[in-house]
Design a protein around this nucleic acid. Sequence first.
RNA 1: GGGCCCGUGGGGUAGCUUGGUAUCCUUGUAGGUUCGGGACCUAUUGACUCCGGUUCAAAUCCGGGCGGGCCCA
Length: 464
Amino acid sequence: MEKDTNFSEWYNDIVEKAGLSDKRYPIKGMNVWTPYGWKIMRITDAFIRNELDATGHDEVCFPLLIPETEFKKEKEHIKGFDSEVYWVTHAGLNELDVRLVVRPTSETAMYPMFSLWVRSHTDLPLKIYQIVNTFRYETKQTRPFIRVREIHFFESHTCHATEDEAQRQVDEDIVILKKIMEMLCIPYTLLVRTEWDKFPGAYYTVGIDTAMPNGRMLQIGSIHHYRTNFSVPYEITYEDADGAHKNVHQTTYGMSERLVGAMIGVHGDDKGLILPPPVAPFQAVIIPIPAKGNASVVAAAAEKIKDALEKAGIRVKLDDRDERPGSKFFDWEIKGVPLRLELGMRDIDNNVVTFVRRDNGEKGTVSLDDLAPGVTIILESIRKSMYEKAWAKQKECAVNIDSLDNVPERTLRFGWCGSEECGHKFEDENDLKLLGVPYIPEEFSGKCIICGKPAKAAYASRSI
RNA sequence: GGGCCCGUGGGGUAGCUUGGUAUCCUUGUAGGUUCGGGACCUAUUGACUCCGGUUCAAAUCCGGGCGGGCCCA
């Protein structure tokens, strides 16, 4: 299956063959996480936990169901979600007086509690997060990890005394993002979404996008600044040092299982997945190469190197199945294991193990005397080069355009005056999605591609 | 909201027009043999989405349900 000529088919094929997810579950858009895929997700979640914990966020877990009465308190928010939420209308045989929403996101579950928890300026900032599943009734075509109806994600929610402090939280979120992405080797672009595309109820939304091989941008997360848009209807107030009562300023930050979809799309090749070493369930796979008469010698040596690597904290798999080596090579390439270690008599005689890198196919040997340090160095070198390569591709995918004739299948950079009128015209007449303007301002001297007036840089792509 | 299409072993399929023994590939299992890039041999498990109708006989024809996909608003 070729990745670059038919990304969609390639993607579905890889998800199935690598054993990430089983989409035969009889509800559209609700797939089963199979062991290998779930391991990747859990390791990814662990990185997220580490970074959030390290920046003073506390993990919590809120109920799945939200009373309709709470859900409807913020007007823009309900308008944005009412066509895509699941409802619980019955309990046993009885119809409920107050219907319950299955959370599409947790603002309306959390904020009634926040109003109880926040009393004084000394309670601030309040920084919490949870890693849960959320539900949205998606009507478009679904796709594993990328467009699903049950979404595994993390959401962090913060409350601050002032708008500036909330703004500083947005910037901290971006630092956290960088650290996580260095592990997942995913490049990203930060774009302030248009007014009509921002999160329902937000003051502004920063979209986190990564380029897929078909030139389309995939949103993998977002950061929102709410100002007091939610704290007013939910009455989240604090008493400041002077005794005045004020509404808190809030932010949220979230990234979903789309991170897994992005890793597949950004790194994979025609042979299958390529996993970044930090998230790979198995960072190295050992494949013994037996030959007549010495199978037990090779098996014992393989066990030994497995133990040595495990002791050094490397996630390693010894593939001792009764299959031919070639067939094992194919299996682990599909699954994207970053490093293959081959061990045969030739290696044992030379006191080495042969390695093959999944990312670039490079082959070499490591001495058995310093195996663990050697493997660690190779894994780190794979991570670094995967990240650099992915960034180079992301930059290469973006093109400047000053006309809408023959728009290429790429990430488009162009001038936009900022008016809603030109924005809608741009989207509707060209079947494009205006992703927004750079969060970190960029130099730009062109004119608006629609009206010709002075403009700032904006980005767009075909919608995914 | 309107319209169209599709459901055959775990996966992919043939058969359906014209009703009668369900094809092939892959996968799984057991044994043998082999092992530095998908080996081979032998044996073997496994399916017509569900309910109803027509008929001597239904994967096939008809109606309905459930599930999936696509297009238009």
